[in-house]
Design a protein around this nucleic acid. Sequence first.
DNA 1: TCCTGTGAACCGCTTCACAGCT
DNA 2: AGCTGTGAAGCGGTTCACAGGA
Lengths: 217, 217
Amino acid sequence: MGPVRRIPEATVARLPLYLRVLEDAVGQRMVTMSSELLAVRAGVNAAQVRKDLSHLGSYGTRGVGYDVQYLVRQINRQLGLTEDRRVAIVGVGNLGRALAGYQGFAARGFRVVAAFDADPRKVGSGMGDLVVRDVAELRSVIVAERVSVVIVTTPAVAAQDVVDVLVAAGVTSILNFAPTTLVVPPGVAVRQVDLGVELQILSYYEQQASLAELRGG
Amino acid sequence: MGPVRRIPEATVARLPLYLRVLEDAVGQRMVTMSSELLAVRAGVNAAQVRKDLSHLGSYGTRGVGYDVQYLVRQINRQLGLTEDRRVAIVGVGNLGRALAGYQGFAARGFRVVAAFDADPRKVGSGMGDLVVRDVAELRSVIVAERVSVVIVTTPAVAAQDVVDVLVAAGVTSILNFAPTTLVVPPGVAVRQVDLGVELQILSYYEQQASLAELRGG
DNA sequence: TCCTGTGAACCGCTTCACAGCT
DNA sequence: AGCTGTGAAGCGGTTCACAGGA
């Protein structure tokens, strides 16, 4: 059937992967790509790819595959990547600094337009071509700079307070690196990246591998 | 029933969350905690908490709740966090540097014991109390330093080659920040953190919110 | 013949609802 | 009375298998 308005969450999370593979393919001068090849390069099942893409509409050609350039445009449109998005970072520690300079953001159309910290010694200092501002100015600057996505890299204890201000300022997209569970009203999207948690999960599988080794040989 | 040997993947991914909440509770001198409160603080459903914890064994007391300290020990044991884990970082860019100094790792018992880069200008330079080593030494140092978890923060094009060496060196736990899909043999655990992908996912929901606003008012 | 698009089966996980213990 | 532990139902997502168009 045709394009549907509600795309499953799991599909949305994979579209950026497909996009990355397809953009590489453009660089390799590929004109079409089968669901099979796209699946291998994205590390998923081919039926998965076809079902995911069917949610955007029938953009493939039977017997041939998908038009690479056309599909890139469609995914970009679906993800709302057709115009640059303005990003702010709250919390200018090592991680915040690294993220502010991360090339992967700029390459994907995300422009960091403001940075904030609560530490008076950091406020006013430079970071790249930005000046670090006081969190007290958070609300006004977010509005004035038309920020649509905010990256939170504060200490855990400060994160919820910051997020409350962000929500009050109308921000609906938050990427949180603080190791704490955020409470937000419906309609606000939060993506949580917890580096400690990732290592702890790996630790579990590492331990399983050790145990298996002991048992198996 | 009693403790089971195979814990569902989804449960494993939540155990670190529970651990964080419970450790906070220890700091607040709490002795027991109900699944209801633990659920609220971890941002999940109470039945979820009970089912998850039932995979570790019957550690709760009906009518009372879970013994906080005891549960902390059990989760730590399950996740294999009872001893420190030795970590290496490959790729000393801004992100690699930030991660090397990240306090959240040390606080959770992950010790960064080696760092590598391919750039001769970085090799030999200091990073914290470490000296950056050449990726050519990757295999030997991994073995000599008994590294069990490796964080990959190289450019995308280099990541697969690095991972092939890691796997050959016997590493079975990898945390990958390079924006590329890694191919690894069975038995090797990879956690993928892609910052660009996270923002692209948020972009989708941000767009949905804008559209809803247009429609709704 | 090749490869997409999709109903249907399947699977793992989540949530409900309540029996059972304290 | 309160809260855990868990069968059973419900749900979203994945994979299969194949009809159908190029």
